[in-house]
Amino acid sequence: MQNAGNWIGFWMALLLGLTGISEGKPMPAPKTESVRSYTITENDTTVYVLHLSLDGAGQPAYFYRNVFTPVCLTGECKPVYINFYWDLLGNYTRFDFPPGEELTKMDHKPFKPEDYEKLQTILANTNSLFRQVAMDDLVGKGTENLADSVDAKAGATLKTVKNEVIEGAVYTCYTLWHIAHGKVVNEMQRITESYRSEALLHRFMTSTNHHYQYWALDRVLGPGGQVPPTFAADVQGLIRGKNVFTARYALQKVAPDFWNTPERQRWLWDTYLKAGYTLQLAILKKLTTTRLLPTLTEPMAGHLPNANPEQFTLLLNLLAAQPALSEKTQLAMAGQLSGSNPDYTARIYQLLTSQRPKNRAVQAQMARFQSKPVQPQH
């Protein structure tokens, strides 16, 4: 009778799992945090509870779900209990288990440590082949083994497919990946949007999570890229941040008039000097939409000899696009006419000529350059 009771209990749990009503074994929330729970209904048969963990200040910290799902493929169903965690925008971060739970393969052998490491890699891959390939195309009928034609159906080499699954647990990987990246993601984004505040936006802008930074920047900037004064420091922090992709994105999105003050143009030039090559080019291209002040044109002119050909062209074009260059800018350029790069000096002279400088020191430098004998090309 005891065995019969155990089987009845299992099948009741299985039935509840299939209807989406049952959740995994409760995971105690950290004592310093509180939790808000949301009942999520995806369809008529899928209902579950999503938890939002709040920090000590009552601010949202992360989402988690205690998952119970039956994995049924070969006529035998295995109950899987696992806890999933996401950031506040629904990006999967990690998993763990209720006490005493583990994952097993088709032959009932438990996962090894390397299997769990691979599972984490699989679940963290938002571009997994699981997104587009049906389960029936991955495994042979009634097995957990990869199908003979899986490479053709998945549109990838067999080696690539094997890298994205755990053999003997393909269906488990497939099921868990779709839970981690399913409709719940939209629900988490909707919930986080309801918490949007200036404090949350500041927090996201200064986060090391690039998903947060993109999300916040898109909500902070006005329709034309206008930067609210209270977020100016955050925007500049993004541009000087370690992530070149978010830095470039912020630079491209910000309205040109944000850089119309001497202080900000000086700051942007200092950023240029410290930046990597990719961001340097992005800064120079951004400046084509901005009227440059002497605060910027003077150090820019002095930097011309240090630039490589691509940078030199961009810098010189920026200077040439200005209605007039200050005397200090012209003097900095004239001082480089004695340089060793004939292409650079010729183009600098051409730009100075177009400016019709009145400063006698500049005129003298130009006269000396013009009187120099032309060096033969080798």
Rank of each mutant, 00 (worst) to 15 (best):
F95H: 04
Y81M: 02
L158H: 12
T160D: 10
L88T: 11
P99L: 11
D148W: 09
K112V: 10
D148F: 08
G75N: 10
T69R: 06
L176I: 03
H181S: 04
R131E: 14
A134E: 11
A61Y: 05
K141D: 14
P99W: 11
C77S: 05
S128P: 06
K112R: 15
L103G: 11
V139H: 01
Q120W: 01
K105Y: 15
F84A: 06
W177R: 03
Y92R: 07
A154F: 00
D151F: 09
D107C: 04
L129H: 02
K112I: 13
N186R: 12
K112E: 15
P113K: 08
V139M: 03
P98T: 14
D148E: 14
N186Q: 14
D87C: 08
E187C: 07
A180L: 06
Y92S: 05
F95N: 01
G142R: 06
T157G: 13
H178F: 08
P98Q: 14
Y62E: 11
T121R: 09
F63H: 04
Y174A: 01
F111T: 02
N91M: 11
L73R: 05
T69Y: 05
E101F: 14
G90S: 04
Y62T: 08
Q132E: 13
T172F: 03
M106S: 07
D115A: 06
K159A: 15
D148P: 05
M188P: 01
G100W: 08
M106P: 03
T143H: 06
R131L: 14
K105T: 09
T175H: 02
N186H: 12
L73K: 10
Q189Y: 06
K153A: 08
W177N: 04
M135W: 05
F111A: 00
D148Q: 11
A61R: 10
D137R: 02
W177Q: 05
E101K: 13
F111H: 03
R190T: 06
L73M: 06
G168E: 15
H178C: 05
F84I: 08
L88P: 04
V184D: 02
T74W: 07
K159M: 10
G75H: 12
G58C: 02
V71I: 10
T69G: 01
P98Y: 15
S128F: 03
Q189V: 01
N186K: 13
V80L: 08
Y171K: 08
Y92H: 13
G58I: 03
Y116M: 00
G75C: 02
G58F: 00
V150K: 00
K159S: 08
S128L: 07
Q189D: 04
A147L: 12
V139I: 12
N83I: 10
A156I: 00
Y92I: 14
Q59N: 12
K183Y: 12
E102P: 14
Q59V: 07
N127A: 09
A156H: 01
K105N: 11
L158Y: 13
N91A: 12
T104E: 15
F130G: 00
Y116F: 09
N127S: 09
R131P: 08
M188Q: 09
G155N: 07
V133G: 04
K78T: 15
I122H: 15
